[in-house]
Amino acid sequence: MTNEVVPWVDDMVAVRDARDEAAFIRVFGHFGPRVKAFLMRTGMDAALAEECAQEVLVTVWNKAHLYDATRASPSTWIFTIARNKKIDVLRKQRRPEPEDLPWGPEAEPDQAEVIGLQQESEQLGRALRDLPEKQRELIEKAYFGELSHSEIADQTGLPLGTIKSRIRLALERLRHSMK
């Protein structure tokens, strides 16, 4: 499947299913500099951010088998890996993760589901860019670790509802396929 609307999904899937190095190099080219910028914003100096960004991309390769295009866009998935790296390195603490949903017997991923989720992710990105300056800054600061949770107050204006129901749908199908 090639799809103009959903960048990086094909490459991530190629890394996952075919251990495709060329696709990985493209993912590296796009996300490496972003992960490095993100880590610098969270308080790392350039050298540490470089080292950690490299490790994040190595993790992307090593854990590619866990990538599920019906549950997360590549940016979302790579964000979670970068965030965990940040917690590990800056806070020096473990990150308890929710129990994994048990994997169903080869639930055939629904392409419409994949495209729907990816399109909503794109939409979310546009909505974020279109937010009033102040509000966008607040959200960015929260994700860069510049706000405490009690300061995270007003997050209205983001269309989280649709993406939430899409993920919920995927969860329900996953649970259903296990019965």
């Binding site: 974020l128 989280l160 993406i163 939430k164």
Partner: peptide
């Protein structure tokens, strides 16, 4: 999942 998606959008 939707908040992680916001994180992805911030990263992007």
């Amino acid at each position: 999942g939707s908040y992680d998606a916001v994180g992805g959008a911030v990263l992007d």
